[in-house]
Design a protein around this nucleic acid. Structure first.
Lengths: 163, 163
DNA sequence: GATAGTTGTAATATAACATATTACAACTAA
DNA sequence: TTAGTTGTAATATGTTATATTACAACTATC
């Protein structure tokens, strides 16, 4: 099982909001086109990012913009914002009915649960060390290299642009 | 989304195999009763643990036993054995159709994927540090405390036993 | 202030996947 | 030979994520 794609969609959205700001009206339709998902999903994810104070949106006119500098938005912030993992249940799925009539069944949960929580914590701490800025910078670099190659190959000027 | 309960079931099974060895015939039915899951699930999980060289089973007579000492079985071993996370796809679910006509859409995957893989790696390294022995020891301690309390309270001798 | 375009959200549908269940052939200890 | 068990396939059920449809609330702009 995997952590919801809302997480990677959120990172994509934030990156795109930053990249296209000023160039396009960055609304849910536009972002949905970039990420290849449904506009309603984008609105849902953006709604969650808004509640977390990461983006700002406007009805009517449309368009989203960032409320925090990229290097202050960690993977953990996003992970929490989009409810990547159920708060109560945690990352690991427990089998729910260990037999209370069995000594192992009624006593393992505590020992196991504590250790799984610790593993999850380790992962989350690691996510605090990564920011969207890291992704944006590398993505921008990749885009530049891409166009550099196009020029290098002296092919022609049909540089593809997003619609 | 969560990591499959096969993982916690596997830890439970290994713990129970150790705890009840010699006392009961530890077959899939018995273990299913302890963990509160279907016997076929137990057989499936045990099958995966067998392929990983962690347990041994016998047809006919039934019963499973451990092939490795508890302190040599790490959470990571089990996590890998029961395919907790899809080998190719990883822990994080990527939105699969980022728009190739969009510079962000066709360039973000690499930067984002590398960082998610690193996070996953951190988690897995942490899982290598925990062994089933840790869980078994604490569970045994809990069981002892439990019966100590029963004696302490001088209630009576109706110490519950697994069926 | 009417209009056109957008967000926020509910309701529902579809798809994907995990777990449960049924069934039975292969096997083994006694 | 028998009784009991494993291994596994096939199928059912349940749960969750994502997609889709629909529309009221809202806002910039003409």
């Amino acid at each position: 099982m995997q952590i919801t794609s809302r997480f990677t969609i959120a990172v994509h959205i934030i990156t795109a909001i930053d990249y296209f700001k000023g160039m396009y009206r960055v609304n849910s339709e536009f972002l949905a086109g970039s990420a290849g998902v449904n506009p309603v999903i984008v609105r849902t994810v953006i709604g969650m990012l808004r509640e977390a104070g990461i983006v700002e949106t406007r009805r009517g006119a449309g368009g989203a913009e960032l409320k925090k500098p990229l290097d202050k938005i960690t993977f953990y912030d996003i992970y929490m914002a989009v409810d990547s993992v159920n708060e109560e249940e945690g990352l690991f799925h427990f089998h729910e009915q260990p037999n209370p009539d069995c000594p192992v069944g009624r006593n393992i949960h505590k020992a196991l649960g504590a250790r799984l929580k610790a593993v999850q914590k380790t992962m989350e701490e690691e996510m605090k060390k990564v920011t969207v800025d890291d992704v944006v910078k590398e993505t921008r670099r990749a885009i530049m290299e891409e166009s550099a190659q196009t020029i290098e190959s002296e092919s022609n000027a049909d540089i593809r642009e997003e619609k």
